Computed example of a mutant assay.
Amino acid sequence: MGEPLRVGIIGCGVISAQYLETFDRLAAVRLTAVADLDVARAQAVAATREGVFAGSVEELLARDDVDLVVNLTLPAAHAEVASAILASGKAVYGEKPLAASTFEARGVLDEAAARGLAVACAPDTVLGTGIQTARKALDDGLLGAPISATATMVTPGHERWHPHPDFYYQPGGGPLLDMGPYYVTALVTLLGPVESVVGSASRTRSTRTIGSGPRAGEQVDVTTDTHVTGILRHSSGVLSTLVMSFDAVATSAANIEVHGETGSMQVPDPNRFSGDVRLKRLGADDWEVLPVSAGYVDAGRGYAVADLALEPGEEPRASGTLAYHVLDVMESLLRSAQSGRSEQVASTVERPRAVPLQELERRD
Rank of each mutant, 00 (worst) to 15 (best):
V238D: 01
S240T: 14
T241A: 03
V243L: 06
V243E: 14
M244S: 02
S245F: 00
F246A: 02
D247Q: 09
V249M: 15
T251V: 07
S252P: 04
S252R: 11
N255P: 12
I256P: 01
E257K: 08
G260K: 05
T262L: 14
M265W: 00
Q266I: 09
Q266M: 09
V267Q: 07
V267I: 02
P268C: 05
N271G: 12
R272F: 09
F273M: 01
F273N: 00
S274M: 12
G275H: 02
V277L: 03
V277N: 00
L282A: 06
A284C: 02
D285T: 09
D286T: 13
W287I: 04
G295P: 05
Y296P: 03
V297Q: 13
V297N: 12
A299F: 12
A299I: 01
G300Q: 04
G300S: 11
R301T: 11
G302I: 10
A306E: 02
L308W: 11
A309P: 07
A309C: 13
L310W: 07
P312R: 00
E314S: 04
E314H: 13
E315D: 08
A318Y: 11
A318N: 12
A318V: 10
S319L: 03
S319I: 07
G320P: 09
G320N: 05
A323H: 06
V326R: 09
V326Q: 13
V329I: 15
M330G: 01
M330T: 10
E331Q: 14
L334E: 13
S336P: 14
R341C: 07
A346R: 13
A346P: 08
S347E: 13
R351H: 13
R353G: 06
R353K: 15
R353D: 04
V355R: 01
L357E: 00
